[in-house]
Each structure stands twice: as C-alpha cells, then as structure tokens.
Design a protein around this nucleic acid. Sequence first.
DNA 1: AGCCAGGCACCGC
DNA 2: GCGGTGCATGGC
Length: 273
Amino acid sequence: MQIEVKDFDIEETLECGQCFRFEKISNKKYLVIAHKKELIVEQNEKKLIFHDLDEAEYFRIWENYFDLKRDYGEIKKILGKKDKILKEAIEFAGGIRLISQDPFETLISFIISQNNRIPMIKKVIRNISEKYGDKIENEYAFPSVAQLKKADVESLMECKTGFRAKYILDAVNRDIDFADIKNLPTAELRKYLMEINGVGPKVSDCVMLFSFNKYDVFPVDVWVKRVMQYFYFENKETSIKNIEEFAYEKFGDLAGFAQQYLFHMARIKKIGA
DNA sequence: AGCCAGGCACCGC
DNA sequence: GCGGTGCATGGC
C-alpha cells in the first residue's frame, strides 16, 4: 500500500540515530525491522510506499511507529520561532519524525550505545537478535525479556557487547513492567530507569523519547553537547546539567523534537568535531 | 600505534 | 556535587 506524507523523510527519520534496525537498500528505500515485523519501505517525493503490506497492519504498527498521525508542521512552526539556530536545524532536516519503538528493545539498544559507534551498535543488536530472537521472514526480531533471560555474560560477550553485558543482564532481570511504568511522569520514570545498572541520564532520556513518547526530555550526548556549546554558550565548555536546564527552559514540552533536529545537524555538519 | 566512540560506574575531593 | 579515569571492541 502507499500513503501521502508531509513533513516526513524516510532517510532523515531512520538515519538520525534514534533507531538501529534498518538497512539501506537504495536511495530512499529501506528494510526496517520493528515490533517483530520486517518491512520494505520507500519514499518517492510525497508518496510513502510500503511493500507487501495490508492496511490493517499499517494501522496496527507502522502508522504509530513512524509517528505519522502527529502534525509536525505545527511543531516546526513553534520551534522555528524560538531562534535562528533552531530554524536552520529544522530547515536542514525538516523530515525527521520521532519513531515510537518497543521500550525493552530501546532500553537494551541504548545501553549498548554508550561509548560506542552507530555501525557497531547496529551490529551488536543484530547479533543479539540472531542469537536470541525469533526468525520473522528473512530477518530476526529483537528478543523478548523472557528470551534474553537465557543469556549470560559470556554468551552476550560473544555478541560483542563488551563491558555492557552485565548492564544488559541487570536490565533483563528487573522484570520491568513497561506497560505500567509508561504512565509515570517524566521525572519519576527517569529516576526509575536510572536505577538500572548502566543506565544514566542520557540512556534513560533516549528510552523515554524514542519509546515512551516523553517529548519533554533533552538527551545530551557528545554531539548535542558540542552543538549546544557552539551555538548557545559561546563555544565554551559547559556541564551537561547546565545544557539540560537551558534546554528545558527554552524548548519546554517540545525539547525532544528540538534535540533531534539539533543532533542531526550537528552530526551531518560535524559541528565542534 | 594510539585515539576515540549517541556514557556510565566508581573513585577521590 | 563535582571532575577524572577505566572500560570491550573495532575503525581510522
């Protein structure tokens, strides 16, 4: 099936670092694995084409996954008025949408992301899926909590998790009720997630933003730190805490969207690097 | 060869 | 509460 989209770009949305389970097939054509399904999706201008997909499954999974119901025109309008810098970031990659992913997969993925590079993160997640997850059609789904309970440090290290193996096991063994904690306010959810060994401010913010629809967070990683210092702090060394507070104050409920636009621009333009 | 990566725990102060 | 250091692994 195919639909018409606006304020959406498949490449920007997938390649902006929020998700890891996709492969580029050709220009604007991707294989995506999520919610125990695999999908080939391609974009041609305003047309978004889903291969071998019926409507029911589109509405059950992918409409929500790609956040296609939200009016990003309105969000961009509000953020664009904040200042010139954000306006530039939005014009630079106005087709980014915040993907709504599975919380457990997102938690483990961003534990793996720490002190790591995106191609390596993708490889480790693929290794874990192939070892513990179910085969879908051609690809492997990310394992459930129950499936990952079969793992130990040694077998995870074989997936190249490195020092993060013990963190993954701690996350798995807490038997988190994701449906339940979803209702917690942002601050409480953050505190709860940070009790997990290997989960700090950055990882918990990413999990909240990319899988719990908490848009009032502002994950600060090396890139966001650089781009914020560069534009808002006269290129001077600034603590993550100060950057967070500045962002909450300035961007409010839309901080998460602002973060994605800024992160993407920083990385592509290599600002501060 | 050594440095560093979508950070974090752990340690000193 | 702050700032410094080690960490598995692989690409450059």
